[in-house]
Structure formats: C-alpha cells, structure tokens
Design a protein around this nucleic acid. Structure first.
Lengths: 246, 246
DNA sequence: CATAATTTGTCCGTATGTATC
DNA sequence: GGATACATACGGACAAATTAT
C-alpha cells in the first residue's frame, strides 16, 4: 500500500484516489460488511496503521472523514466506535419535525398496514426491476400526544427477508442495521406543501384540503444504494421541519 | 502563542480552546472585519504560520475547518481565497427550491415594497430592542417563468445604513457583504405547510386556501449574530425544497 | 513551449497532553 | 498510579497544480 502503483507512475491514473481515502473506503467496507458492528470499538489508530502499512496520520485523516459523516464516534481516552442508530442519533440526524413550543422528541408509531407485492413506482425509486417484490409499510406517528405524521415506507423485499412476519419497532433504521445488516448512511428529502385528501385527513384528524407537509425521502445504505423510499405527510400546525444551511 | 498560558498551567482553563481553533478564530475575525475581503487571496500557509508563530500544520488544520464551513476556498497551486457570495454559492448553499422537472436555477426578484420603522416582532427575532428601527423588504421571485416565492425580509436598520435609498439587487447576501461589511455565515430554517391568504394568493396566482410552503429563515453573520429574518411563501406545485440528511 | 517558482495536497513520523479504565 | 487510547501540535518530504518567466 505504501508504494502504491498510483504514486509510482509518472501520471496518476484516471480513477486515482488519495491514500487516506482508499483507507477510508476499506474501513467503511468493513462496517458495511459487518466485520465491525454497530457500537463496537475499532482497533486503535496505530494498530490499523500497522495492519494496512500506512502512517498513523493517514488513518487519522480517514477516521476524521468518517467522523464527519457520522459513521464512527471518537471518544478521547476510550477509542473509536462504529456509530449506532440509537434513538438519539435518529432524532438529530433523520427526524426533523419539532414541536413548535417544546423540545425535540422521538415520536411513537402505530403500524396500519404491512404488505408485499409488485409496485412499479416504488421499484423505480429504489432502482429495482419493475417486477421485483417491494415491501410497503403504512404507519402513523404521534408527537406530543397528537397524530402528526402519516407515512408510507417502501423497501426492496430481497434485502429484508421475513420482515412481514415480524413485530415492527419504532426505530426502523436500528432494525435494518441489527437484523438485516443494512446500515443507512444518508438520505435526501424533497418537501412540498399539499392539500389533505379524505383518507389522509381522517388519519390525521384535520379537515379535507388542509395544508400538509409532504416529505419524500430516499435513504441510502453505506454503499450508496437506495434502500428505502419513504413518503411522510405531516401536520405542521403545531410543529415545524428544521433545516440548517451551512 | 506557542507557549500559551492555557498550556503551561497544569489544568486547562475552563474556557480552553485548542491552538488550531484559536488560530481559526483569528482568521475568521480578519474576514469578518474586512481585513481580508471576499474573493481575496490569503497569505500562504507558511506565511500565516510564521506571523502567528505556530507550525504550518496548525494553520492547515484551522484552514481545513474554515473550508468545511464554506468560509474559504482552497485551490491547489493557487492559494486560499475568502469565499464569495456569488450566485453559484448562494444557489447551492442558501436556495433550496428546485423545479420538479428541471435543473437548479437562480430566481429573478421583483421588489414590491421597502420600508423602515418600528417592528417589535422582527426586532425580537433579530435580537434588537423593541423600538430599534427595522428595514422591511417585500419581494416576489420567479422560477422557470412562474411567480413562485413571496418573501418578506427584515434587517436591523443600524447595520444597513442607506439601504432604503438604493437599488436592491437579486443577490442580497452579496450586497450585504460588499456594501455593508456584513457576511452571512449560516442560516437556520423552519418549514411549515400553510394555506394561502387572499393577498398571498393574488401575488402567487393561486386560489385562496391553496397549500404553500412557508420557510422561516434566521441568517447569522460570521460573528454568530442574527442579521436577517426572512419569511418566504413558496408555491410547491411545480417545485420542491431539498434537504440532505448526513 | 519549456522551466522554475509558488502554493496547496498528501503522507510521514514524533512528542506531548488529556481522558478513561 | 499506570496503561492505553485519542487529541493536539510540531515539522519535514514529496507530489500536483498553477502561474510567471
């Protein structure tokens, strides 16, 4: 690794990546493959450096990036740990709806429906073939005692075998990681204001035509593949969605 | 600086900051104070290191952070430059509304109204006294040929003297920086779905009661003070707001 | 067009401080 | 207190990109 072909050649190859990024990729892959599991401590920086035959500084830079991506957590004096999808992290990274006059809070969930079958639209969003089997989960979420979010979650059935026959917990991303080895790395959301239809209005306890915030999320696994498509309809009369621009 | 009092004492002071962060603060202050202006090249890393009597690696780490915060831009072989609020940056960092079936685009603006006076609500948002003078700018913005955003922008009059008597350009953050020495560093937005009122509906060409996306933004200067409060009402029938979760 | 100078990017190695067990 | 781990700081060597000569 130290005397990488990329560096020896006069010209860098087209697909050249810096050494620290190659190291990063190796470490990410170990997490994605479950070699190092959620919450587990990584080997120390000098150990990783010795194993991969790079300098400690290079490992440090790779871990710096992974820390910035929320893939690992570093604790001085203790070690570096694979980030867990615990409630606190989900709350800050993936749940952006906050009660207007109160603090951040993890919503309860009630499952309405869980089916599997053909769903061309969802399959397209998830990058599957039109006829690949898709799981569809409908649920309603409660914030500060009020039904607040109605959401439909679509998943590639192939990645989550047996999910239909299982109790579905509140924290889905933890379930994906712990039970199916699918770790969500990041997600991209598209927001619109829409009018409530009859069925939606009934679930959320609002009038038909009332404005709702529609959040269309595509979530990606650590290897950058789309693995969840989620559409949430949110009441925003007593809550708001936060977005920080930096 | 090298033999900082913080380091000599056996115990770190309560308000201790790492050296590279102290360096960062000095450099940020120079940008905030206009010593180094937008687009200007900074001295080279070894020069800054020599001037502040720290090692080049420490300056490098300070600049790394500032790069991550979009305060400076580094270009290999050329130098490090103070980030400009040019259209491209505004478009990616601060304008999150994208046409559904097209690419990112910088919206046109038409000023409806520009007044100054007492405004307790805006003053409170901006951290001013209730009776401090506030500038209020109303404008309407066009995306893909369609009136799309109706927004009200509130500013502390004390920071923007003479703004009322001036032509107001499309790119406000550039104006703040170039003409008034106020650089926006980051912003925080709260989103809700609301129903259009009569006046709003007329401006945006929709029916009364139609759902609109209400974006409530507080923007902060480099020294972390709130300097702009902006409420935007957006049509989202042919556009959407994007938010990346990482 | 070729070369040199400048600047950031990458990589390396060491020493010391701080937190935890 | 000692051992271990990460955090900080330092400084140097070479590569890559750009600009000036």
């Amino acid at each position: 690794m130290k005397h990488d072909a990329m560096h020896m050649a006069g010209k860098p190859t087209l697909g050249f990546r810096p050494l620290y990024r190659q190291v990063r990729d190796i470490l990410v892959k170990r997490i994605a493959d479950g070699v190092w599991q959620a919450g587990q401590m990584l080997p120390s920086e000098p150990e990783i450096a010795a194993e991969l035959d790079v300098s400690p500084g290079t490992v440090r830079k790779a871990l710096d990036e992974m820390t910035a991506e929320n893939l690992v957590v570093r604790r001085q004096g203790r070690g570096t740990f694979v980030a867990k999808h615990d409630d606190a992290r989900i709350l800050f990274q993936f749940f952006k709806l906050i009660p207007d006059s109160s603090v951040r809070e993890f919503p309860d969930s009630k499952v309405l429906n869980l089916t599997s079958g053909i769903n061309p639209e969802a399959a397209s969003q998830l990058g599957l073939g039109r006829r690949d089997c898709v799981l569809v989960l409908d649920r309603i979420r409660t914030l500060a005692g009020q039904a607040c979010v109605l959401e439909r979650i679509c998943l590639p059935a192939a990645l989550f075998p047996g999910l239909e026959k299982r109790e579905v917990p509140n924290n889905l991303y933890q379930l994906y990681a712990m039970e199916f080895g699918v770790t969500i790395g990041h997600a991209s959301e598209k927001l619109k204001a829409v009018a409530a239809t009859g069925e939606e209005a009934q679930h959320l306890g609002v009038a038909v035509g009332e404005p709702l915030l529609r959040v269309d999320r595509l979530a990606f696994s650590l290897d950058q593949r789309p693995v969840e498509w989620r559409v949430s309809l949110c009441r925003t009369d007593q809550a708001h969605y936060i977005s920080d621009l930096r």
